[in-house]
């Protein structure tokens, strides 16, 4: 599969759209266990990236630079905890894409490994803490093992998205251990984590993008 800088920008735009569609849903999830603004925060951050897509990034061909600008823009727009987390993901991923305008399947796998490891490094959350890591970690493991076995990126990423979805659903039965919701203890049970949910939306948006590239 050939994945280009244009495809990378399409992915970012797909996330912009999916966050806008799910803004209220994410805030509603957050209202049950947090301060109710997760959808708003994600929307602010991705809308800021959208502005960059319309201007600065319009002609950019370097996938590394696209990721750096996406990460820094998101961070400056939102701050919060998701700001540093996703910014670190994008900046670590940018190193993989540095200077490249066309990406190989291997580079796409390396990008997601770097992205997710970056998020984990910054946030220090463990699997089972009821955070976005509960989506990202299983997705990462599935992506790595499937790709190593089959060398088929699209199939491997499809499996990764399913693993991420399962991880997202698992947060319903988890006690919150990180972030502001951790004070809830038992009362966080039964509610799906908004951060795990938006992480899943990002992974699915990437899958939608590769799928359309693949089938063209």
């Amino acid at each position: 599969m050939k994945f280009t800088a244009e495809d990378l920008k399409t992915f970012l735009k797909n996330v912009v759209d999916v966050m806008e569609e799910n803004k209220d849903y994410l805030s509603e999830l957050d209202r049950k266990i947090g301060d109710g603004d997760h959808g708003v925060t994600m929307s602010i951050g991705w809308q800021a990236i959208n502005e960059k897509l319309k201007e600065e990034l319009k002609t950019e061909k370097d996938c590394g630079k696209i990721c750096i600008i996406a990460g820094r823009t998101f961070l400056s727009a939102v701050g919060s905890s998701v700001g540093p987390l996703y910014a670190t993901g994008f900046l670590r991923g940018a190193k993989v894409f540095h200077g490249k305008s066309d990406l190989t399947d291997e580079e796409l796998v390396d990008f997601w490994v770097a992205f997710i490891e970056g998020v984990k490094d910054r946030g220090k959350a463990e699997l089972g803490d009821k955070t976005m890591v509960d989506t990202l970690q299983p997705a990462l493991e599935s992506l790595k093992s499937q790709f190593n076995q089959t060398r088929d990126f699209v199939a491997a990423f499809s499996k990764a998205v399913s693993a991420g979805e399962k991880g997202m659903m698992s947060t319903k039965d988890l006690l919150s251990k990180r972030g502001r919701s951790s004070r809830l203890g038992e009362r966080s049970l039964g509610n799906q984590d908004p951060g795990a949910t938006s992480a899943f939306l990002i992974l699915s948006a990437f899958f939608t993008t590769v799928n359309s590239v693949h089938t063209v």
Partner: peptide
């Protein structure tokens, strides 16, 4: 100053 109930970014 950050967004409502959200930390400001590093800049």
């Amino acid at each position: 100053v950050g967004n409502i109930f959200a930390s400001p970014p590093p800049d």
